[in-house]
Design a protein around this nucleic acid. Sequence first.
DNA 1: CTTATCCCCTGCCGGC
DNA 2: TGCCGGCAGGGGATAA
Length: 272
Amino acid sequence: MPELPEVEFAARRLRTWAVGRTVSAAEAEPGSPLRDVTPEALAEGLTGRRFEGVRRHGKLLMIDLSGDRVLLSHLGMTGKWLRSKPGDTPRAGTRVQLALDDGARLDYVDPRRLGHLRWLPADEARRHPMVTGLGPDALEICATAGGLAEQLDWSKRAIKVALMDQSLVAGVGNIYAAEALWMAGINPFVRACDLEPDDYARLAAAIARAMTESLDRERDGEIRYIQDRAAQNPFEIYGRTDAPCPRCRAAIMRVLQQQRSTFYCPVCQPDR
DNA sequence: CTTATCCCCTGCCGGC
DNA sequence: TGCCGGCAGGGGATAA
């Protein structure tokens, strides 16, 4: 579920909760989203380590621990890091529990198990395809003049599909692709190679704006994913099939693109 | 090489 | 009321 803003928010919370703290006990569930590490090895590896920092690139969290070890954490569709107390009953979908030396507990919760956790020496983490396979971070590249176009304008795929390819630009998912293309007035099916430099400039600004707005909205609250309840949906067009376009009142369309829902306004985002 | 398709998982919702 | 299909913000593996 999380895209760049939600993962950034998770990184900030993890920093305040964990950096400087030491893991006093760890427990991981078999069958959890652990990759290339057993629950026992992860729990044993984490115990006694101190959190040194939390970095984010695109949707990937890189959690640095003492002794030059890194926990790579990708939240997938339903992953979250939450703080609780040692006695609390774990909420459904809890896969990892870390007791910290300040008396708090860190829980990795991932009901659908589509997330990824990897436990690696720092140098291996740096070289891991999960890290090296990512394109530039979306917020950074969108702040660079011409940067977004340089990443995408050679591709013959639909701009929405190319935008969501994490090896080209890291951090844009289904929601922010829809929101940004709507803000920029670009049809999601136009080939990336057919967009003009001016289109890319508007698109980069739109991505930055859509993501920044979410970060501002989430600053003081808990991450809250939309439920299909229109009243809670904070987005302009995502999830709003048949609702009037906020700009022109035409009905928002929902179509499938690469097996994922694409939302757009047929009037504000015309074919070309 | 790039691109398209299927698959992985669980939970919720609306329709019959 | 209960079952069933569709859908969900993720990426990886595989085939063309």
